[in-house]
Amino acid sequence: MLTVLAAILGIAAVVGAYYAIHNEKLTAAIIASGIVGMVSSILFLLLAAPDVAMTEASIGSALTTAIFFFTLNKIRQTNG
């Protein structure tokens, strides 16, 4: 049962990663990479690693995404 759940989450992660690499719009790509971080945190939980899952959930999905958006905002500002 857990294997099926892991496979479904894995499909979501791979689709998110493909989307993040191949999408033209940067904002959509950044949010897709945030989804990859969130899904991988659930995968860590399935592998019996709650410590790693906690770190990945707050860093991979929140802080990394926020830093990318701050950079994007700054670049847009510099452009005028």
């Binding site: 857990l2 294997t3 892991a6 894995g10 992660a13 991988s40 592998l47």
Partner: peptide, 19 residues
């Protein structure tokens, strides 16, 4: 039941790393 959980997750990791 969950014979291949480790293998499945490892395969996901490989695909993500190569992508």
């Amino acid at each position: 039941m969950d014979q291949y959980l480790g293998q499945v997750v490892m395969a996901i990791g490989f695909i993500l790393a190569i992508l």
